[in-house]
Amino acid sequence: MYGAVYVLSTVTGYVLTSALLLKCPTLLHRKKKERFHSKHISHRGGAAENLENTMAAFKHAVALGTDMLELDCHLTKDEQVVVSHDPHLQRATGINAYISDMAYGELPPYLCKLDVTFQRECICEGGEDKRIPLLKDVFEAFPNTPVNIDIKVNNDTLIKKVSELVVKYDREHLTVWGNASNQIVRKCYKENPRIPVLFSFPRVLQLLCLFYTGLLPFVPLKEQFLEIPMPNIVNKLYDPNRMSKSQRLFTWLADNLLMRKALFQHLTARGIQVYIWVLNDEEDFQRAFDLGATGVMTDFPTRLKDFLDRNGLSKPQ
């Protein structure tokens, strides 16, 4: 009997301590310093308003007042760091070749029209700027704008080159980098631990396990940014009637597991920003901020800016 009482009291004490630290994590952890705070994040520069990952897209987003540019990097044959999403050029340029097999001067321009990945039946028609830019072009053009870099391939030289550019342009305080791959994130952190990293996919799964077991308040976290999808946007990208029951169940389950206000509040209290992607309508903007997300990543920077302005969420000028 006494053993049962002891176990019960121990479990009760653990649960109460976990609940307290979940609400007040700074009792155990020093809050991470936020060098910048981003609500408005332009996905690929705003892929629905200008051709993705072009200087025209980035200039438009920055002119609107975006808090952060999100972009993707690859390495050319002559070891130039370029801003492009796909490793292969077919979708974006119509050319059957890999970026890594071509020198920068050989890269073709973007097509005039590109599908917008996260908006159903949406095509973006570009203007005159169809050039694949260099990462240094972005750094030079926007010295004070935070940049979110997705290292698209597991390439040690690419990681090293990106780090060198970040250091050269004095942007360690304005950059976050990473990938869904845990191996890539570990390499990024090892190459330059002064540049904040994103949670990789395996680390997101670990984070959820820690959260649901009550262990999260006791565990230190090296990452400073949680960047996750809102799973139920799948219902807007695809016809729900054509999804199987198992697909619909998985989407519902993933959404309910990931979109947790208590989790977001705990992380932000520890100085870890929470970004949700890729949201393109007001209903999803509202839900993300109601859940306590720090920022929203969108293909429609103008649409998100209008929403923030109308709801009094924009930063004071």
Rank of each mutant, 00 (worst) to 15 (best):
E125Y: 06
I276R: 04
G126A: 01
P108F: 11
R248E: 10
V7W: 12
T213P: 05
D170G: 06
W277N: 10
R131H: 14
Y238N: 10
V82I: 13
L114Y: 00
F264W: 05
C122D: 05
D150R: 00
H88I: 11
K23Y: 10
P25E: 07
Y6F: 15
K39W: 06
S84C: 11
Y110T: 00
H43G: 03
L216D: 05
L28A: 06
L28T: 02
G126W: 06
Y104A: 02
N280C: 02
Q224I: 00
V116R: 02
F36K: 00
Y189P: 00
E79S: 14
T17A: 15
M259A: 00
G127M: 00
A288H: 07
T93R: 06
S18V: 11
S9C: 15
V147P: 01
L308V: 05
G271D: 05
K77H: 11
I95G: 01
A254W: 08
E106W: 00
D156A: 14
F250C: 11
Y169A: 03
E140Y: 01
C209T: 15
V166P: 03
L205G: 04
L51N: 03
G178T: 04
N144C: 13
H60A: 14
T117K: 12
C122K: 14
L291P: 07
L205K: 04
L313D: 02
I276H: 07
F36D: 03
L249V: 08
S200T: 09
R203D: 13
N179M: 02
N182A: 14
L205P: 00
N155Y: 07
M68Y: 07
L208Q: 09
T294E: 02
F201T: 15
L205Q: 03
L111V: 08
T294N: 04
K31H: 00
K305R: 14
V176W: 00
H266N: 14
R242L: 14
K33C: 11
I233E: 09
R131M: 12
K187E: 13
C112K: 14
P240Q: 06
V185D: 05
I272Y: 03
M259L: 13
Q224V: 02
D255Y: 08
R35W: 09
K23R: 14
S38H: 03
M102I: 03
N179Y: 02
G13R: 09
A4D: 12
V83H: 08
R287I: 07
P109I: 00
K33A: 11
T17D: 09
N241M: 06
V274N: 09
Y212W: 10
R120A: 11
S200R: 09
E125D: 10
V153M: 10
F142R: 08
L8C: 14
V138A: 11
G46M: 01
